[in-house]
């Protein structure tokens, strides 16, 4: 749950906070997809099964 909240905070930072201007200002769909893919990968990381010791 903590990982999910951290990842959500990162996602909000990238997509909604003023930091979004860093990539949104490029008006490039390619950059936008890359950012999206990063968020998506973070989502996968947040719910991946924990490794057993």
């Amino acid at each position: 749950m903590t990982r999910s909240l951290v990842v959500f905070a990162l996602g909000v930072t990238l997509l909604v906070s003023p930091a979004r201007e860093l990539w949104l200002r490029t008006d490039s769909a390619f950059v936008a997809f890359v950012v999206w893919a990063v968020v998506l990968a973070l989502g996968w990381w947040s719910v991946r099964p924990k490794e057993r010791p």
Binding site: M1, F8, D27, W36, V39, G43, S46
Partner: peptide
């Protein structure tokens, strides 16, 4: 509306991050 079209799908992406929560 430019990249606004992506926002419609980025919203569910953010929502999906909240699945465990």
């Amino acid at each position: 509306s430019g990249l606004d079209f992506l926002a419609v799908s980025l919203g569910p992406t953010l929502a999906a991050l909240l699945v465990p929560v």
